[in-house]
Nucleic acid binder design. Structure first.
Lengths: 326, 326
DNA sequence: TTGTATGCGTTATCAT
DNA sequence: ATGATAACGCATACAA
């Protein structure tokens, strides 16, 4: 391994000169050229660890994601990646695999790595999260969930649920089947559902059956196969696009035609909803945009610029062919 | 920030004792308990950089992926992640965004980070790659493409293409439309196509029209809209599942019924092919398994155990409802 | 502009 | 079992 000392020796200068050459750059043209040459020849690159040991700035942002094979996560991530690149930040991406202990461990690891800020795609913020974050005194941004007294960016899921309900009511639907997920996930499990339920309150004669299923298509498919035959619903609300796609498959399997027999809608705005038959009406979320804005916000925090604790991103109803008038 | 010195001072011992306590652990019970307490109270964790500055082992594996929003990439990645976790390796995941300069930069970064080995999900290995790898003298594993004199793992894409062709011929098809991608991608663009073409050679009276499209569904969809009306093919071979899904959508749009009007098959074995109508016949690739084996192989290399330069993974034809006899 | 000396937090060597 | 000290590679305050 070639070090700054090697370069200095070969060039016949002090290593501080080399260091200066590498950083602020107050060196004479002659030595600069000499060093240019030697660095190139040797392929020398500064040792990150030695550098970071001294430095206060590492130019790195840490990201913690809940899992690797999620379409929405990866969209957010690619937004983060794009903006981080533009802002000349390096990214450290870690995966918690939906494991809380691992998530906390990842935060600690990132702090040790002296990242300048952490972006956490989270489901729930516990006291231990708070303690860790406070002790480290590091800019921290939670994505996808709101969190008291912590900077966060989230979608207005309650409103999204409400809008879906409103839309369905306007179409004349009164009997609903709702496929949700665990309330542990505040945004997806709780708020979407509550917003939806709230939207029905102004209308009489509505019925709702709620089924808790999973993010997994396979599980959701099976749950739909079980539930659809016993349902009188004319509109099936699915808490995610994946669930909607699975329910659609179950419907096809059971020979219920969609949307004639019942309408289906999802949440997420995944590209995949465009490539099934019928295409699925969905609440679209600006995932990539969230990633971009997350880095922007974090950059502000890093630079001591104040931002509101909570940033809400809009969502938009995309009507496609899976929903019709009753 | 609390350091090993703080701990030592508080415990009234030398920092070397604390270091020993942290590592091999040859300390008396009394001091151990004292240190346990203090470490817990202060929330002390060793500084990664200082550690890595001395240490020869970092316990980190570097991974370079071409993009963040690809289903296959993420499957591989989740296999890598799982096995790395089991093997107590930390992962550094970097994204090249399909940019060669960035890819080379990432390799350099990872080398600087003193990772113990690098896994590269690659399209092409250039001389500059080789130089970098050789100079660093670090275990290196290329995934998805073969590479001369570099350890690699790949699917037998040629064989996969051949098997698809064979299957279609057996079904009685003679007229083909092939949606491929750029030959720059050796595995997907070249080998699948060549294997397929080779399989037709034993049969007379076959016709093939080849169209080069893109990995993007949107582009593939548009290309299919343009190409399908002018095609007399009874079987459409798509070089990826995404392309197959896009072609299917185009077919529906154009009111061609699949598989009656023509059969469609893909490559990849994506879950998504199970959730469209009809479900799509595909060559399934063990993506996650590749990730797992990649870490196993890299671990061997790190430990100086020799493995063959080339590891080929099998693939399997999954027949579904998009292909029928002619 | 350049060189000298010091310190960053840790591990390793060698005494004790 | 424990402590003192050197070393890792680099940045920087200060002196020249």
């Amino acid at each position: 391994m070639v070090t700054i000392n090697d370069i200095a020796r070969q060039a016949g200068v002090a290593k501080s000169t080399v260091s200066r050459y590498l950083n602020n750059g107050s060196v004479s043209l002659a030595t600069r050229e000499k060093l240019d040459k030697i660095v190139k020849e040797t392929g020398y690159t500064p040792n990150t660890f030695a550098r970071s040991l001294k430095a206060t700035k590492t130019n790195m942002i840490g990201v913690i994601i809940p899992r690797l094979n999620s379409a929405s996560t990866n969209e957010v991530l690619s937004g983060i990646d794009q903006k981080a690149r533009e802002s000349e930040y390096d990214l450290i991406i870690t995966n918690s695999n939906q494991d809380r202990e691992r998530e906390l461990g990842n935060i600690q690891t990132l702090i040790n790595q002296k990242v300048e800020g952490i972006i956490l795609l989270a489901r729930e913020i516990t006291e231990r999260h708070r303690k860790l974050i406070n002790d480290a005194n590091i800019p921290f941004l939670v994505l996808g969930q709101k969190a008291e007294a912590i900077h966060s960016m989230a979608y207005s899921d309650y409103e999204a649920g409400y809008k879906i309900g409103q839309y369905a009511i306007e179409l004349g639907h009164r009997d609903f089947l709702f496929f949700g997920v665990s309330e542990q996930d505040k945004a997806v499990g709780l708020e979407r559902k509550n917003g939806f339920l709230e939207s029905l309150k102004d209308t009489t004669d509505t019925t709702v059956k709620i089924i808790e299923t999973s993010f997994s298509k396979k599980v959701a498919y099976q749950d739909a196969i079980d539930a659809l035959p016993n349902s009188k619903a004319s509109y099936v609300v699915c808490a995610t696009d994946n669930i909607a796609i699975a329910v659609l498959k179950a419907a096809v399997e059971l020979k219920y035609s969609v949307p004639e027999k019942f309408s289906i809608s999802g949440f997420g705005g995944y590209e995949e909803t465009d490539y099934v038959q019928p295409t699925i009406t969905t609440m679209s979320y600006p995932y990539k945009e969230m990633g971009i804005q997350a880095v922007e916000n974090l950059t502000k925090l890093v630079n001591g610029i104040d931002i509101p604790y909570e940033t809400l991103l809009p969502n938009e109803l995309i009507v496609k062919n899976s929903t019709i008038k009753r």
